[in-house]
Design a protein around this nucleic acid. Structure first.
Ligand code: MN
Ligand code: MN
Ligand code: ZN
Ligand code: ZN
Lengths: 140, 140
DNA sequence: TCGTTATTGAAAACGATTTTCAGTTAATTA
DNA sequence: TAATTAACTGAAAATCGTTTTCAATAACGA
């Protein structure tokens, strides 16, 4: 998502558009990869030197809540975040295991599967999370 | 998986069948839910009082490597683990968001999707992770 | 039973994330 | 523009899950 659009979203929520937040938004808007909070902090400090890591965490929490950023579950260990391209509806991620590049896709064709699961197990299916891991063209 | 089968698997790997490990295996074998390491520790101490949390972590790492236990990525925060029912092939989980009960399924019908993704993005797709979240019959 | 070696648990270390809190800043108002 | 104020911030400390260290122990084969 473009940075202007992200800023607009924040304003709509009545949130202040502070320099630290702008720095985080800029990083997320520019990058097409999943980034750890620490990495976002490092990059964000290029445009706003005094940016604190705490604020990165707080801003990410905010953006995740608003659906503007998506958490990436690496196989083991900690989480990274990736800015979403299209904030409407749900979508999934195709992640390069080498460089972290993220492609977003929305057509996960799981309607049938979910219906079947619901029928067979009696579970009321509410949500699902799909992550596809691969190797991007550049890294191959 | 039955505890005897789990024990057999350990032996096949030339691993010692210690009381701490037996305690962990028993918990995982008995439970149909995702459990945090701390919870496994608590329950495991019922059959072996001196069980250490460190050993729980170590045993889980071992079992995960052997494909006998699967990591569950909760939306935010830390990871839980669930013993697998059928250790062959890959499968996915249907998780009750209330009680943590886990149902396993293997037919995720994503062959087409993955092929399409690969074609459209140029990524070499290598793996995928699917978690379905819902509410089990008992919790509804 | 004995000896070897993997395994264990307590404690400490570690690293990521969260909380606290006093100072700052963005946005609103005069 | 200047004053006001509540939201926001960053440093430091606290917290929490996980890993490492290391001396002691226990499994298992001889
Ligand atoms: Mn995760
Ligand atoms: Mn699958
Ligand atoms: Zn790549
Ligand atoms: Zn349930």
């Amino acid at each position: 998502m473009k940075i202007a659009e992200l800023e607009q979203r924040l304003r709509e929520q009545g949130l202040k558009l502070t320099r630290p937040r702008q720095a985080v938004l800029e990083v997320l808007s520019r990058s097409g990869s999943r980034l750890s909070p620490a990495e976002i902090h490092r990059q964000g400090r290029r445009s706003y030197r005094r940016l604190g890591l705490v604020t990165v965490y707080r801003t990410l929490a905010l953006l995740e809540e608003m659906g503007l950023v998506q958490r990436v579950h690496t196989e083991t260990g900690c989480h990274s975040f990736a800015g979403v391209r299209s904030p409407e509806g749900h979508h999934h991620q195709l992640i390069c295991k080498d460089c972290g590049r993220v492609e977003e896709f929305s057509d996960c064709a799981s309607e049938q599967l979910l219906a079947k699961l619901q029928k067979e197990t009696g579970f009321a299916v509410e949500d699902h999370r799909l992550e596809v891991i691969g190797c991007c063209p550049k890294c191959q």
